[in-house]
Design a protein around this nucleic acid. Structure first.
Lengths: 176, 176
DNA sequence: TTGTGTGGTTGCATCATAAAACCAAATGCC
DNA sequence: GGCATTTGGTTTTATGATGCAACCACACAA
């Protein structure tokens, strides 16, 4: 795959208390060519995915997130703002008619579902103490566990990691 | 869902709004009942998945990771150690006969592949500047993009998030 | 109007980070 | 063997984000 290249995004001059200035390299993967890094840049802090998870289950209000996740309010506030900035959540007027605000998932936010499922399944499969896992994700209709995510080729063949490779995006097939 | 119980243990990477990453005191979800939280506890810092990604592509040596990822050596050292502790990587004597050590993925580590694919696909689908993404994951045989991960029921029905629900693990079907 | 709950922001101490300097062992070269 | 260099880290240091708690503003209720 590609590696994230570290790059100095902006001149970040920092003044030490000794009066010196130093250049702080900000390692950001925003603008990086690696899509994994780009995703991590948007979701990579660990509260964000938990917030999204709760949102997928219907939480919308600041207080609901705060109660459920038990996180500091300032952090929640910062995370919600970041998620809104990134188009993962959107603010909306409260659905119950109150003047308060709600945070709802955008399609981009709902699109993280496979990521959450993948994380869940990894835990289910490899956790050292699986008996501590409290819930199973099931198909609502049948009540049976959802199947493990699998990678398939366009034609439906099941793929292992070794069956895949990375191609430069620019090298798109030009014929048909 | 579960409430994480806060417990300060290990490091976690957090992204600031400037795009910097920083490691902070983290509340750990180890021992939590939510499998997503448990996964995030093991993988949830952002360097770890990138290290795993490189490892999937064959990197094994400390120096290789360091060069490729461009991260501080102390952080890499800490991450590698944490990943080894968690059974995601294992140390092995160098394959080239030298006295140095190598870090190789365990099955548990290789099991993160769907997570990486999910992250990648999310980026490919929702990124604001998809043209900046340099690579595509393709089926090696045909050179065509791998199909988007999809959730299916045991019987093969395609599932949306709304088609799923969580069930307590203890409430396993006792009949049949 | 006063009072209470919701939805935050602000201040502050802690502590993990990231960069760089340092160091030891292994290897290469002669 | 002896010396230099590379590899693989650890230590040191400064920064600054986190998490907690206090505070605040607005909405809503009475």
């Amino acid at each position: 795959m590609m590696q994230p290249h570290k790059r100095v995004i902006g001149p970040a001059i920092v003044r030490t208390r000794m009066g010196q200035t130093t250049m702080v390299k900000r390692t950001s993967f925003e603008g990086d060519a690696c899509p994994i890094a780009r995703s991590l840049d948007a979701l990579g802090d660990w509260w964000s995915l938990l917030i999204i998870r709760e949102a997928l289950f219907g939480l919308r209000r600041f207080g609901e997130f705060q109660n459920k996740l038990g996180m500091a309010k300032n952090i929640l506030s910062a995370r919600l703002r970041a998620l809104v900035d990134r188009g993962i959540l959107a603010t909306a007027p409260a659905s119950d008619g109150s003047a308060y605000q709600e945070y709802v998932l955008t399609p981009k936010g709902r699109g993280t579902f496979p990521i959450l499922v993948a994380l869940r399944q990894w835990s289910e499969e490899f956790d050292d103490r699986p008996e501590e896992i409290a819930t199973i994700l099931v198909d609502r209709e049948k009540g049976r566990p959802v199947k493990k995510l699998e990678m398939r080729a366009e034609d439906g063949r099941l793929l292992t990691p070794a069956d895949t490779t990375l191609k430069p995006r620019s090298a798109r097939r030009r014929s048909a």
